[in-house]
Structures are given as structure tokens and as C-alpha cells.
Design a protein around this nucleic acid. Structure first.
Lengths: 129, 129
DNA sequence: CAGCATCCTTGTCGATACTG
DNA sequence: CAGTATCGACAAGGATGCTG
């Protein structure tokens, strides 16, 4: 409807901040990265995203569902089966988040090299005598 | 050098995680969003990114500098002038991060609508009697 | 101007145990 | 299987005061 929305992520009170805070999150990026491929079950996500605790996955999924980025479908099997899938809205974000994963994997070595160079220049106190 | 690197952000011990954790950060996104336009001074960043404290800005910039995404240049004026600029490496990331800001500003209304719908379905205890 | 050092509050997260 | 509830450890973050 409007070409340039009144929203400004640099304004403190802007609700955009809340959204940015949620999507610019490590776990969100990884979860949506998987869900953009196909629907996943809760425990499958938990096993695939190493280091992610079940509590945090639960919170993350609930927030993503509330924000309309992910849908949750429960099947009345025994035991119950729950499937998480990305929504159309979430799909519009997935490629941008996927770019972050790609960038990390492709540039990790450059970053590590920069860190070594920086640490060599700036030996911080507490390390080495 | 290698088309498909061995790095996997879904592995717990992968250093990619560290990088992802840093770039998937609200403040990093906002800071790099500004620096991608032109170099900025410390206090200018502080004033422009509302709600960002000086301590956190300082930490964020230092990490970005260490990771090779941002350069810091001090001019021996009185008082001292410091300029932060994006590096070539950082520039390769800036567009992806900028996409997150754009997405937030363009889809905030959809997200808010989803939240209202969700909250109407799932009235959580503690609110309303 | 461009920070650093400190205190202290708050939220986040992992571990554990239990439920439908 | 798919979670919820609770506890405790920890770290991020705000506020304040000081320095080159």
C-alpha cells in the first residue's frame, strides 16, 4: 500500500525492533533454515540442531508460530505427532536468513584470520604473562 | 578455494556457530546497516541507534573490528576523532543484514496481525480474568 | 570526543524432572 | 513423542563515574 512505510528500525520505540530482535537470532536462523526445506518434527529439529536445548527450541518455535512465520500441526496419533512447517510469510524471510548461514560457512576462515591478526596486535591483559 | 566447505552451522563444535551468533545480532545488524552507507563516528552511531548504550556499542564495534568486518581509524585531533568504516569483508555481509531490516520494516504489520490472532486463540494465564 | 571500569539488575539458558 | 515446570548458573545489558 505504501512505498515507504513509517517504520524505522533505528527508532527506539519502533515495533520493528522487536521483530528484528527475534529474527536476528542464532536459533531462529538455524530453525528456519531447516523448515525452509520441508516440515520437521520437534525432536528431529532438536537432534539436527546440535547444542540447542529442548527448552529453547520450544520457546523459539512458539515465538515463530506467534509471529506467523511457522505453523504447528498436531496429528492425533499415539503418541501424538507434531509437525512444524514454514508459512508463506516465513518463506519470504527464509532466503535472507539462509544467506547468513551461507555467509558464515563461506567466510569463517576470513573471520578467523582477522581474529588472529587482531589478537596479535592487541594482546589483552589476563592472557600470557 | 573450495566450492563446498566442510563447515556446518548445525554442528555444535563448528566455529561457524560463533560467527553466526555474532552477525545474527540486533545491534550488529543496525550498526553494519549504517556503516554500509558511509563511515561513522562513535557518538554519531550512538545517537542514531536509539536505545543502544555506549557500553554495548563499544563491545559491538570491538567485536566487529576483531572479526574483520569493521575498521577503526583514529585521527590525532584534539579531542581525538575516531571513524568506523565497513571493510570489504563486512561489505559482503551488509546486504544480507540490510535485508533483515527491510524485511522487518515491510512485514511488521503482518507479524503484528499474526501475534494478535495467536493471542486471541491462546489467552495465556496471568492476563485478563 | 571516544571510550573504559565498576556495580547491579535482569534475562537467558542448560539441566532436571514430570505430564498427556 | 512432544512438550511444560522449576531451579540455579551465568552473562548480557543499563547506569554511573572517570580518563586521555
Amino acid at each position: 500500500m505504501n512505498a515507504s512505510p513509517p517504520w524505522d528500525a533505528y527508532a527506539a520505540e519502533c515495533p520493528t525492533r522487536m521483530v528484528l530482535d527475534r529474527i536476528a537470532d542464532k536459533w531462529t536462523v538455524l530453525v528456519l533454515g531447516l523448515l525452509s526445506e520441508h516440515p520437521w518434527r520437534f525432536n528431529a529439529l532438536l537432534r539436527t540442531i546440535e547444542g540447542l536445548s529442548q527448552k529453547v527450541l520450544s520457546q523459539t518455535l512458539k515465538r515463530l508460530e506467534r509471529d506467523g512465520l511457522v505453523s504447528r500441526t498436531a496429528f492425533a496419533t499415539v503418541p501424538v505427532t507434531v509437525e512444524y512447517a514454514i508459512t508463506p510469510l516465513g518463506a519470504t524471510l527464509a532466503s535472507s536468513l539462509g544467506a547468513l548461514i551461507d555467509w558464515s560457512e563461506r567466510n569463517i576462515e576470513s573471520v578467523q584470520a582477522a581474529q588472529r591478526a587482531f589478537d596479535a596486535r592487541q594482546p589483552h591483559p589476563g592472557r600470557a604473562a
